[in-house]
Amino acid sequence: MAAIVYFRKVAETEEVVEYAFGDAPDDFDRRLTVDKASCTSTVQDARIDHTFLKASRKLYALHEERGGWPERGMSVS
């Protein structure tokens, strides 16, 4: 069974970057925030599930690869 998550940046400051994310390209019903200093992420609804972890891991991988926080993206496995 395939797992997919879509995300897009909604805000960025010197300290944090915030993303909306969800299981469909038109359904960004959740939010996660990345603390740039500690490279930790939190989810607004406090649900630490596979979708949140998948989005967080992909965001970190893209950040490392590109040297900046992506505007949007997806992860499929």
Rank of each mutant, 00 (worst) to 15 (best):
M1P: 08
A2F: 11
A3R: 15
A3F: 14
I4N: 10
I4H: 08
V5M: 00
V5P: 04
V5W: 04
V5K: 00
Y6L: 02
Y6I: 05
Y6F: 10
F7D: 04
F7P: 06
F7I: 06
R8D: 03
K9Y: 02
K9F: 02
K9D: 01
V10T: 08
V10E: 13
A11E: 13
E12Q: 11
E12S: 00
T13N: 08
E15H: 11
V16I: 07
V17A: 02
E18R: 09
Y19P: 01
A20S: 13
F21D: 05
F21M: 06
G22M: 03
G22Q: 02
D23T: 11
D23V: 13
A24I: 01
A24P: 03
A24H: 10
P25C: 07
D26F: 05
D26C: 05
D27N: 06
D27F: 07
F28I: 02
F28A: 02
D29Q: 06
D29F: 08
R30K: 12
R31T: 05
L32G: 10
T33W: 12
V34N: 06
A37Y: 06
S38G: 14
S38C: 05
S38D: 11
S38R: 14
C39L: 15
T40Y: 08
T40K: 14
T40R: 12
T40H: 13
S41L: 10
T42E: 15
T42H: 09
Q44E: 15
Q44A: 15
Q44W: 13
Q44M: 11
A46H: 14
A46C: 10
R47N: 14
R47V: 12
I48E: 14
I48R: 10
I48F: 06
H50L: 11
H50M: 08
H50P: 03
T51E: 12
T51I: 12
F52R: 02
L53I: 13
A55C: 13
A55F: 03
R57H: 10
R57F: 15
R57E: 05
K58T: 09
L59V: 13
A61I: 13
A61W: 06
L62T: 01
H63L: 07
R66D: 12
R66L: 13
G67S: 04
G68V: 05
E71L: 11
R72H: 03
G73T: 00
S75I: 08
S77T: 11
S77W: 11
